[in-house]
Design a protein around this nucleic acid. Structure first.
Length: 764
DNA sequence: CTGCGTGACTTTTTT
DNA sequence: AGTCACGCAG
């Protein structure tokens, strides 16, 4: 049946006895297929009921894909399954047991922006010095603590500064509790505490879930791991799939160590390696293997393919970032000319700042492209405003939302008034909404009118279907009018209209396969499991009003930031954003020391290793063709910076690479940390015999050129601020485009654009 | 309250 | 370079 298409390792993983297991799934080894087939197999062989499974992912996209593949294999109603993101599943639990968790049923979810605003407001109200305690740092501190599972009393207070942070954390918690709001980390921590403190609820879920499946296990943080362990405490088998070599989110709390811990504590010997790669050709895969081999402490894994060597990885060094971009454009053109689909070509970069030049070049060339990342739908300013109104309608005591729109569109409510309101609210321990009556008192004040507006919105939309609620709010709040009047408001108006559509889609999906909100299907009620504990309903709305359901949907799924399907465009994105994707042709750009690996990470071994994993992820995105490029000079923060070739290039064996430009000079730093000049692999001053010059590079033999007021000729001595002394050994091009190949005494040969590089001519 | 000027920032980011 | 938040003057 469904096992036929699997290789032996995949099959072994899928058909494993119910026991803890760690599946080390390399890039392109069929990880998602194994995960979904495993679930289908458990169900089909009668070893598990669909309701006895819990599968958890990090992104909504991954969860959706899993559901889609599941329903393709098994004709069951996937809607009731506990398949979702950590946050989505915790949200579901908390809604169902909100009383036990100490939350109002319609608690609102703060995204990062809301959270920061809430922290700023709180700090102001309590006179916390925002110079000594930058709100962003406070936010990081609070989230960091929560992700470790720590409440304020649990955090170690080793100095005064730290003690103050803990106080702010404490105040923040009280504020959230008062307002009935919950941040992302709180969703997880609350759910964890609910399970650990409430025995009936815990035992209920422990008995229910016999199989827990985890995707991208290398990305779990400490709290997520604790949550999983708790859930599995009743004897459930954890099936964890991950790849330690693709752990690239340590900077936001992911703990790769969870994999080793899991193996030691649970999986013991049961580690299955998926090492056959179905994506890339040999040269690409071997490059990735060689590179990642420089990391220490890996769980160990070597990808292989039976697809053959394929083409070597093409590498080129260009004089500037602009020329790098231009070269990529030319190469993309010829790929398209050869019949490649644009959407099968990806241009990857380490940091977003690099996208500008690339975008500019691709745009100028008239090639359709799409940049991933940036603002997502529910994060747009106008959408956040609209959502704030909706949230106030669901809960007028949500001060964060109140502050966001109390004077937007402007209605003459200034900072002064709001300060008084905040004071009154604090004095009477109530929300801003609750304090309105205490302040101006008179019904005619702007403030009272705003409170009245919210009240009216609630009344007037009471019996309306969700999309009409949104529509009515947009009109009555004045948002529509505001953006209509604004010069650049057309797009925002469109987005607001889109919000009505989103609400309609959300509402229809609720009704679509039929389960009215609040109805608990029989299988899921399972009061037999734990008498007295009513299971979380399986419908997305979870018994909430449609509005509250929509709001939590909006918070948990910020919408696409990806290229729309069907549009054939070249894909531009950061390496991080590329994780999980694959393309026929991939360009990895900016392979320069300080950029990739990034300078902020090279001081620490762990940082450098994460950068290397990042490069590993980048390489393994490519199916057929891989290009790696670097630029000698690059505009960064307003000034031109010069960099040397990334050490990562020297960690890939020559046999897999094809240099399209002269490979010159020493490797910057040996990967073993031996220092300058270390990684030289025997070609210090030589150039490869197979040199080919990039097609578009200005060529032409010249013995002397004039650039600006300077004359250059072969054999001349020059000095460069960064590279030191050298001798011109070749010249090409003319005028501002002229390039010189220079043999530097200390750093080897480099090709520099004479119009860009600042060279001094050394006499004699 | 609004508009504009100044200064500080700038790795990666999902929920 | 470019963005963005904040502070001051109108």
């Amino acid at each position: 049946m469904m096992l036929e298409k699997l290789n032996p390792e995949q099959r072994a993983a899928v058909t494993l006895e119910p026991q803890h297991a760690l599946v080390l799934a390399g890039a392109g080894s069929g990880k998602t297929r194994v995960l979904t087939t495993r679930m289908a197999w458990l169900i089909q062989t009668g070893q598990a009921s669909p309701f006895g499974l819990l599968a958890v992912t990090f992104t909504n996209k991954a969860a959706r894909e899993m559901l889609a593949r599941m329903s393709a294999i098994l004709p069951i109603d996937t809607r009731g399954l506990w398949i979702g993101t950590f946050h989505g599943l915790c949200n579901r639990m908390l809604r169902a047991h909100h009383r036990d968790a100490g939350l109002p049923q319609s608690f609102q979810i703060l995204d990062v922006t809301d959270q920061l605003a809430a922290i700023k407001r709180l700090m102001k109200a309590n006179g916390v010095d925002d110079e000594k305690f930058p709100p962003r740092d406070v936010q990081r501190f609070i989230n960091g603590a929560k992700e470790e599972g720590l409440r304020p009393p649990d955090v170690e207070a080793y100095d005064a500064h730290r003690r103050r942070l803990i106080e702010v954390y404490q105040l923040y918690e009280a504020q959230c509790q008062r307002e009935g709001v919950v941040d992302f980390a709180e969703l997880l921590l609350r759910a964890y505490e609910l399970l650990s403190r409430n025995a009936p609820v815990r035992e209920h879920y422990q008995r229910r879930f016999r199989h827990i499946l985890v995707d991208e296990f290398q990305d779990t943080n400490t709290l997520q791991y604790k949550w999983l362990r708790l859930l599995a405490g009743g004897g459930a088998a954890i099936f964890a799939v991950g790849d330690d070599d693709q752990s690239i989110y340590a900077f936001r709390g992911a703990n790769v160590g969870n994999m080793a811990d899991f193996e030691r504590d649970y999986a013991h010997g049961t580690v299955i390696r998926l090492e056959q790669n179905y994506r890339s050709f040999g040269h690409i895969l071997d490059s990735a293997n060689a590179l990642i081999g420089h990391n220490t402490g890996r769980l160990g894994k070597n990808l292989w393919t039976d697809q053959g060597e394929g083409e070597p990885v093409r590498v080129i060094e260009q004089p500037s970032d602009g020329m790098e971009a231009q070269w990529i454009v030319d190469e993309i053109r010829s790929l398209i000319h050869e019949g490649s689909l644009r959407r099968e070509i990806a241009v990857l970069y380490r940091s977003n700042a690099q996208s500008r030049v690339l975008e500019h070049a691709i745009f100028s060339a008239g090639i359709p492209y799409k940049v991933y990342g940036g603002l997502r739908f529910f994060e747009r300013q106008e959408i956040k405003h609209a959502l704030a109104y909706l949230r106030l309608m669901a809960n007028p005591h949500d001060d964060t939302s109140w502050m966001r729109v109390v004077n937007f569109p402007t209605r003459g409510i200034g900072a002064r008034t709001l300060e008084q309101l905040a004071d009154a609210a604090r004095a009477h321990d109530t929300s801003l909404y609750g304090a309105v009556a205490l302040v101006a008192g008179k019904g005619g004040s702007n403030l009272a009118q705003f409170a009245q507006l919210i009240h009216r919105l609630i009344e007037e939309t009471r019996d309306l279907p969700l999309p009409e609620v949104v529509e009515h709010m947009l009109e009555t709040s004045g948002l529509n009018a505001h953006y209509k009047a604004e010069r650049e408001g057309a797009e925002r108006l469109e987005n607001l209209n889109e919000l009505i559509t989103a609400a309609a889609v959300f509402a229809s999906e609720e009704n679509y396969d039929g389960m009215p909100a609040g109805v608990v299907p029989e299988q899921a009620t399972s009061s037999t499991l734990m008498p007295g504990v009513v299971d979380a309903p399986i419908v997305a709305s979870d018994g909430l009003t449609p509005l509250a359901g929509f709001l939590s949907h909006a918070a948990l799924e910020a919408g696409d930031n990806q290229a729309q399907q069907g549009q054939d465009a070249v894909q531009l994105m950061t390496v991080h954003a590329a994780k999980g994707l694959e393309f026929d042709a991939v360009f990895i750009t900016g392979l320069e020391e300080g950029l990739f690996p990034h300078e902020n990470s090279i001081l620490e071994a762990s940082g450098l290793e994460e950068e290397r994993r990042l490069m590993y992820v980048a390489i393994t995105r490519a199916r057929q063709r891989l290009y790696i490029s670097l630029a000698q000079s690059r505009m960064l923060h307003g000034q031109t910076r010069y960099a040397m070739r990334s050490r990562f290039l020297d960690e890939i064996p020559e046999e897999h690479l094809k240099w399209l430009s002269p490979k010159a000079g020493l490797a910057p730093v040996s990967s073993t940390g031996a220092g300058w000049g270390g990684g030289n692999r025997g070609d210090a001053f030589g150039r490869k015999a197979t040199n080919t010059i990039a097609p578009r590079q200005p060529r032409g033999v010249a013995t002397g050129v004039t650039v600006g007021d300077k004359q250059y000729r072969v054999g001349q001595g020059v000095h460069h601020a960064r590279f030191g002394d050298g001798t011109i050994i070749g010249l090409s091009g003319a005028g501002q485009d002229a390039q010189a190949e220079i043999q530097f005494r200390d750093v080897g040969a480099k090709t520099l654009a004479l119009g860009i590089a600042k060279l001094d001519i050394v006499q004699g």
